[in-house]
């Protein structure tokens, strides 16, 4: 079960915050890093997101994604560090490579924004049941079709894995080696991936039919199996988030 979703089922204060409140946090925390482009401030916001991840007991789950984004971050630092148009103040040079203060500051700002973006989305995705989030959005007026697309995208990985398992079984039953050392597995992988992709394309069309005959396109008002959960502090937290947004905007306008 746990492998079928990105949601991490733990008990924490963050898990007990309403899904839409967390969504609001994502939007506000990303927005303010653009409204106030000051390094110290963005660092503070990023550290806040990090702290929330830790309180939600999901900090370790975000590490692989952060690791993946390292490449992006390094390229930001190199490109901005060398080539930022406002580069003036030389920080230091190694051989013919020169780092400028302006470029590096800008690179740090971009990096922190990216990190904050990943981490705040991480808070939402890792500590919230996806179907609950989507159903809350539908109840707020989002189209059920968009809701379906969101949920099914979040299920792509388990879905691919299930297809992959089915096809591996089929290939094994036809005598193909699918287990063993790396070389054997790599050899087995390519004939595997083609049917997996073709299969998903075919499935999409059939699935459209299956959804259709289960009334996906009726204009009737939807009902929900899952009851809306009661959350505490929703009003308080949301008000604080809105206040933060307004204050940053005001600060930006006034300064």
């Amino acid at each position: 079960m746990s492998t079928m979703t990105l949601y991490v089922d733990k008990k924490s204060f963050i898990h007990h915050v309403a899904p839409l409140t967390k969504l609001l946090y994502v939007m506000v925390s990303i927005a303010i890093t653009y409204i106030i482009p000051k390094l110290e401030f963005v660092l503070f916001v990023t550290l806040t997101s990090l702290l929330i991840l830790a309180i939600g007991k999901v900090f370790r789950k975000i590490l692989p994604i952060l690791a993946l984004s390292i490449l992006l971050i390094i390229s930001i630092i190199i490109v901005q560090g060398f080539f930022h148009p406002e580069n003036q103040t030389v920080l230091y040079s190694i051989g013919f490579i020169t780092f400028y203060k302006e470029g590096l500051t800008f690179a740090a700002l971009l990096t922190l924004r990216v990190l904050n973006m990943i981490m705040s989305f991480g808070i939402l995705i890792l500590t919230t049941k996806h179907d609950e989030l989507v159903e809350d959005l539908i109840k707020k007026g989002m189209s059920p079709k968009i809701g379906y697309v969101l949920l099914s995208v979040l299920q792509l990985i388990p879905q691919m894995r299930a297809t992959m398992g089915k096809i591996t079984d089929a290939q094994r039953s036809r005598g193909m080696e699918t287990e063993g050392n790396l070389l054997v597995r790599v050899k087995a992988f390519f004939p595997l991936i083609v049917p997996v992709v073709l299969n998903s394309l075919h499935n999409t069309r059939e699935r459209a039919i299956a959804l259709e005959v289960r009334g996906f396109n009726t204009k009737m008002k939807k009902t929900f199996l899952n009851l809306s959960k009661e959350y505490q502090y929703t009003k308080t937290i949301q008000s604080i988030l809105w206040a933060i947004l307004i204050v940053t905007i005001a600060w930006r306008i006034l300064s």
Binding site: D131, Y148, S152, K166, L211
Partner: peptide, 13 residues
């Protein structure tokens, strides 16, 4: 229909 897999909505847990 035939394929059990594609009849799952792929949106439920």
């Amino acid at each position: 229909f035939e394929n059990p897999f594609s009849q799952m909505t792929a949106s439920k847990y």
